[in-house]
Write a protein that binds this DNA or RNA. Structure first.
Length: 275
DNA sequence: CTCCAGGTACTAA
DNA sequence: TTAGTACCTGGA
């Protein structure tokens, strides 16, 4: 096992909340499945203990995925001094962090998220991996990776119907083809161009493109607006509930700036976990 | 059984 | 630009 000093960290909220749907908790460890590996992590005494399968000791991947180069503590200090709601959220959801997830997998996963609750999304993505991912031997037996594009290319829309993707089957099928035919080197450079590219995928609208930008592509000033983040603004901050998507997102951006993603995630998890 | 879910596409005004 | 609605399915 390898380890990294990480400071404050809460894997339960970070890995099993609304950002990622590819983690399982087995005992005190978490197993995440990616397109080319299974990653095992455990958190203890401010250390992130990790191991990858197949074993490559790929520390770079772990550091990027968990955002370990950011100054988390100073961000938290800024956020909690913002107002009483943020203070409460930072205390209650202590150790929540943002992830920097691999692009393809994040986009495909969020395409499956529309109009589903988190538990159902996790099940769908588990089923997909279980059937079409590649088996990898780990210390708890065989676990499956998230399928690679090259393997998904062989499938038809109907294969996704069989996995109960429902009306998202067509979106998913089209996205696989499009990902295979697209070049995407500079997705973190220009937010307008990136959003335009993401929304050109069928089944990707405002919300899902923002999720991909915030949880995969490091656009830290974006809070994806869903039912919860909308409810939070309207009830806690007394915003008119007829406000449209972009105005609402702009409100978050104006209020939180570059800490918008992280702040929004704190409010989201805190509100969601209390009901 | 009903209602809802980290929405999107489509249509009509 | 805005409002209304269908959409697959499983969880609560």
């Amino acid at each position: 096992m390898n380890f990294l000093e990480i400071g404050e960290y809460n894997p339960d909220i970070t890995l099993l909340g609304g950002q990622a749907f590819n983690w399982y908790k087995i005992g005190n460890s978490f197993y995440g499945f990616f397109q080319d590996r299974i990653l095992k992590i455990k958190f203890k005494d401010n250390k992130l203990i990790w191991k990858d399968f197949p074993e490559r000791d790929d520390e770079k991947f772990v550091i990027q995925y968990f955002n370990l180069n950011e100054d988390y503590e100073s961000k938290i200090n800024t956020i909690k001094s913002k107002d009483k709601f943020l203070l409460e959220s930072v205390v209650e959801q202590k150790g929540l962090r943002l992830l920097k997830q691999p692009f393809e997998q994040t986009l495909l996963s969020f395409i499956l998220s529309s109009n589903k609750n988190i538990k159902a999304i996790r099940k769908t993505i588990y089923d997909l991996s279980n059937v079409y991912g590649e088996p990898v031997l780990t210390d708890v037996g065989i676990l499956n990776t998230f399928p690679k594009i090259e393997n998904l290319l062989r499938l038809e829309e109907n294969n996704y119907r069989e996995l109960s993707f429902g009306y998202r089957s067509k979106y998913f099928f089209n996205a696989v083809q499009k990902l295979n035919n697209s070049k995407f080197d500079n997705l973190q450079v220009n937010d307008e161009k990136t959003r335009e590219f993401l929304k050109s995928f069928n089944g990707v609208g405002d919300k899902i493109s923002d999720c991909v930008m915030a949880f995969s592509l490091s656009f830290n000033n974006i809070t994806p607006i869903d039912l919860w983040t909308r409810k939070i603004l309207c009830k806690l901050y007394n915003i008119n509930d007829k406000i449209n998507y972009n105005d609402l997102k702009n409100w978050y951006q104006d209020y939180f700036g570059d800490l918008s993603s992280l702040s929004g995630q704190f409010l989201f998890e805190n509100y969601r976990n209390k009901i």
